Computed example of a mutant assay.
Amino acid sequence: MGGKLSIVATPIGNLGDITLRALKTLEQADLVAAEDTRHTVKLLNHFEIKKKLVSFHEYSNEARYGELVGALREGKHIALVSDAGTPVISDPGYGLVKRCVEEGIEVESLPGACAAVTAVTLCGMDCSRFSFYGFLNTKSGVRKKELGEIRDAGKPCVIYESPNRIVKTLKDICEVCGKDVRVCACRELTKVYEEVVRGTAKEVLDVFADREAVKGEFVLVVGAARHVREASEEEIVRALQESLARGMTKKDAAAYVAALLGVPKNRTYQILLDL
């Protein structure tokens, strides 16, 4: 009899959000593969579930993959959990699921808590269509390029952010997407100090920039831009010169500025050739 991998969503804060099906699966599984066993053992202890735990995270090596896939081949039932929310969504798990699919091992996913979906329901924007970006790149240039894509998406986009980078990211949103773009910032979702701040990017920035310390994980919903102004040739030239001064190649500078300012890449490249 073949094994089974169960993707189990766990609470993002409030333990009352665990589902009955998730509890039953955790009780029945032969072992639990957890992003951080120290975190997951607290969840299991709270619900009086005694289960073998193994660590499985984004840095897991080939030996750990082999161990888990081998157990599944032998008919074991493994429950995959992350520290909070639904595994694979900006959390470890994709590689293991991929291998199971390739080998014909049964995979099931248990619906449950997801910070991105929770924020979307709270934002007050039309999210009948939205894009999920997860955590943006920590490098400023790449992050601004990603924000250029968000600005031009024509629909709300969801971003995850840490408390130590939230102010910087909101400043970048103001710069790239515009100060008036709608933003909903959700902090500490489902926890005791849950906070939801809605307004323009500038208004939301002002709220958190004025605090001495910002704590808790964030989910940002960035609204669709109402209108993107056509960048002038002077703005493109200035951005290209700044990019080249930072050591970018001409090809990379043209692509970066095109995404940053929302203009065709062939236009930025032609202007670059004429400099």
Rank of each mutant, 00 (worst) to 15 (best):
G95W: 12
L72N: 04
G66Q: 14
V181I: 15
E175R: 09
V97Q: 04
L136K: 02
L26W: 05
L275P: 11
V183M: 05
V183G: 03
M1K: 13
D252L: 12
E233L: 10
S60G: 09
Q28D: 15
G124T: 05
S6Y: 14
E217Y: 01
G16W: 01
S128N: 12
R38P: 12
A224Q: 08
V196P: 04
S232M: 07
V219S: 00
E195A: 10
K144I: 02
V196R: 02
V81F: 07
V117A: 14
Y65H: 15
T40E: 06
R38H: 13
E194I: 00
K155H: 13
V120D: 11
G141S: 11
A33Q: 06
H57F: 09
R238M: 05
A33R: 07
K98R: 15
E233T: 13
I7S: 07
A213H: 15
S109I: 14
A153H: 07
D274Y: 01
Y94P: 02
P156Q: 02
L272W: 07
E175L: 14
L220R: 01
L147M: 11
K155Q: 15
Y65E: 07
E233H: 09
H46A: 13
G262Q: 10
A22Q: 08
K50C: 03
F56I: 02
A119F: 04
F218R: 01
T37V: 11
K179G: 14
H39D: 09
D36M: 03
Y269W: 12
S128C: 00
M248N: 12
R226L: 09
L273A: 12
C157K: 02
E242C: 02
K168S: 09
G93P: 06
A239C: 12
R143D: 09
I236W: 06
L273E: 14
F135L: 05
H57R: 09
V158Q: 02
G262A: 10
R21L: 07
V263A: 12
A259I: 00
L20M: 14
A79N: 03
D252K: 12
D274N: 14
D91P: 06
K202Y: 10
F208Q: 01
G95C: 10
Y160S: 04
V54R: 01
R143F: 12
K52W: 00
R129S: 13
A9I: 00
T25C: 14
K168Q: 10
A9S: 15
I173C: 00
A239I: 02
G13D: 06
